[in-house]
Design a protein around this nucleic acid. Structure first.
Length: 200
DNA sequence: GCATTAACCACAG
DNA sequence: CTGTGGTTAATGC
C-alpha cells in the first residue's frame, strides 16, 4: 500500500479531516495522538482518543460519501492517506489483511460499547478516574503525563461539564490519589482510582 | 424533609 | 482556559 500512500504531518490542534467534508481516503495514523469527535445538536462530543498505529477513517470512508466525524491532532502527528480503491482492493485480494482488519474493527466496537455504558452510568468521579487510568495505561504507559486535552475537552470526552472536571480533579488531588499541576498529572494511587472508577 | 450530585452562571486570575 | 463559589433541579433515602 505504500505506493499509494501520501504522508503528511500535523501539529497539535490541526484538523486531519472534518465532519461534513468528502471522504476520499483511508487515514492511517503512523505516529501521534488524535481525537475523534462529532459536532452534535448541542455541543462537540469527543468519541474517542486514537493513538498510533491505527486506521482512522475506515467507518466514515469505506461506504460513505461524507465524513460523519472529524479527526484532530492533539499531539504532533503523522498520517498517511491511502486511496480508498487501493484499500478496498487490498481487502478483496488479501485474506490475511482482511481478517486482521475485522478483528481490529471488532475490538473498537466492543470498546465503544463499554465507553457508551460507562459514560451513561458512572458518576463524575468514576469517569474522571477512568479517563486518567486510560491515559496512564493505554496512552502514555507512565504514571506521570501531560494531559493532551483541556478541561472542557476532557468533559466532552466523558460527558461532564468543564466545571465538574475541574472540581473532581481538584478533589482527587486534595485526597492524595493524584498530583496535579495544570495539565501535568501524576497518578499516585492507581488502586484507589480503580475503586473510584467502579464505585464512583 | 434532607443529603447528594452535577449542571448552570458568574467572576477572577 | 481554569478554578471556585453560589444557586438550582433532580434523585434517593
Amino acid at each position: 500500500m505504500n505506493k499509494n500512500c501520501v504522508q503528511v504531518t500535523y501539529k497539535k490542534g490541526e484538523t486531519i479531516f472534518k465532519q461534513g467534508s468528502f471522504s476520499t481516503n483511508i487515514t492511517y495514523l503512523r505516529t501521534g495522538l488524535v481525537k475523534v469527535h462529532i459536532m452534535g445538536p448541542e455541543k462537540e462530543q469527543i468519541i474517542k482518543i486514537a493513538k498510533a498505529p491505527a486506521y482512522l477513517g475506515i467507518p466514515t470512508t469505506i461506504d460513505e460519501e461524507i465524513n460523519r466525524y472529524s479527526a484532530t491532532a492533539i499531539m504532533d502527528t503523522s498520517v498517511c492517506y491511502i486511496d480508498i480503491d487501493t484499500f478496498k482492493n487490498f481487502i478483496v485480494t488479501n485474506g490475511y489483511f482482511s481478517h486482521e482488519l475485522v478483528i481490529a474493527l471488532c475490538k473498537e466496537e466492543l470498546e465503544s460499547y463499554t465507553r457508551c455504558v460507562n459514560r451513561a452510568q458512572k458518576n463524575a468521579a468514576g469517569k474522571i478516574a477512568d479517563a486518567l487510568l486510560f491515559f496512564k495505561n493505554d496512552i502514555f504507559n507512565s504514571a506521570k503525563f501531560t494531559l493532551p486535552l483541556s478541561r472542557e475537552e476532557l468533559g466532552n470526552l466523558i460527558d461532564a461539564t468543564r466545571e465538574s472536571v475541574s472540581r473532581t480533579i481538584a478533589e482527587l488531588n486534595n485526597d492524595g490519589f493524584i498530583k496535579v499541576s495544570g495539565k501535568h498529572i501524576e497518578i499516585l494511587k492507581e488502586e484507589s482510582l480503580k475503586m473510584i472508577s467502579q464505585n464512583g
